[in-house]
Simulated scan of single mutants.
Amino acid sequence: MLMHHLDHLLQHYGYGLVGVIVMLESMGAPLPGESLIIGAAIYCATTHRLDIAWVVTAAVIGAIMGDNFGYLIGRSVGFRVLARYGRHVGLTPERLTLGRFLFRRHGGKVVFFGRFIAILRTFAALLAGANRMPWHSFLFYNALGGIGWAGGYTTAAYLLGNQAEKLSGPIGLAVGSVAAVVLLAAFVFLKRNEKRLTAEAQQAADREEAASQRHHSDKSAARR
Score class of each variant (00 low, 15 high):
Arg115Pro: 13
Asn193Phe: 00
Ala40Ile: 06
Lys191Asn: 11
Glu200Cys: 10
His5Ser: 14
Leu91Thr: 13
Met133Arg: 09
Ile171Cys: 01
Ile147Tyr: 05
Val55Lys: 00
Gly151Met: 09
Phe69Thr: 12
Leu183Asp: 03
Gly107Met: 06
Leu31Ile: 05
Tyr43Ala: 08
Leu72Gln: 15
Pro32Lys: 00
Asn142Leu: 01
Asn68Arg: 09
Lys195Ile: 14
Leu17Ala: 07
Ala205Trp: 00
Asp7Phe: 03
Ala63Thr: 13
Leu160Tyr: 04
Asn68Trp: 07
Leu98His: 03
His216Arg: 14
Ala41Ile: 04
Leu159Asn: 01
Pro134Asp: 00
Leu9Tyr: 12
Pro134Met: 09
Ile73Asp: 05
Leu190Arg: 01
Gly176Ala: 09
His215Thr: 11
Tyr85Met: 09
Arg49Ile: 15
Thr154Gln: 04
Gly151Ala: 05
Gly169Arg: 10
Ile37His: 01
Trp135Cys: 07
His88Asn: 09
Ala211Asn: 05
Leu120Trp: 03
Val89Gln: 09
Gly151Ser: 09
Phe189Asn: 12
Tyr85Thr: 12
Pro32Met: 00
Leu126Asp: 00
Phe113Met: 13
Leu197Glu: 14
Leu126Cys: 05
Leu9Asn: 07
Trp54Met: 08
Gln11Glu: 14
Tyr141Met: 05
Asp7Ser: 15
Ala210Ser: 12
Thr57Pro: 04
Cys44Asp: 02
Thr122Gln: 14
Gly169Cys: 13
Met23Cys: 15
Val60Ile: 14
Val175Asp: 03
Arg87Gly: 05
Gly161Pro: 05
Ala204Val: 14
Asp7Leu: 10
Gly78Ala: 04
His4Lys: 15
Met133Trp: 10
Ser217Asn: 09
Val181Gln: 00
Val178Met: 04
Tyr141Leu: 04
Ala222Gln: 11
Leu183Tyr: 03
Tyr13Lys: 11
His12Cys: 11
Arg100Gly: 06
Asn131Pro: 06
Ala124Asn: 11
Ala222Tyr: 12
Glu34Ser: 06
Arg100Asp: 01
Gly16Phe: 02
Phe187Lys: 09
Phe123Trp: 04
Arg87Pro: 10
Gln213Pro: 14
Leu139Glu: 07
Lys166Phe: 07
Leu160Gly: 02
Gly161Glu: 01
Met133Lys: 08
Arg75Ile: 04
Ala143Val: 06
Thr155Cys: 05
Arg223Gly: 13
Arg95Gln: 10
Gly176Trp: 08
His12Pro: 08
Trp54Leu: 10
Ala63Val: 13
Tyr141Ala: 00
Val77Arg: 03
Tyr153Gln: 09
Gly172Ile: 02
Ala40His: 06
Arg105Phe: 04
Arg80Leu: 07
Gln163Gly: 07
Leu2Met: 11
Lys109Thr: 13
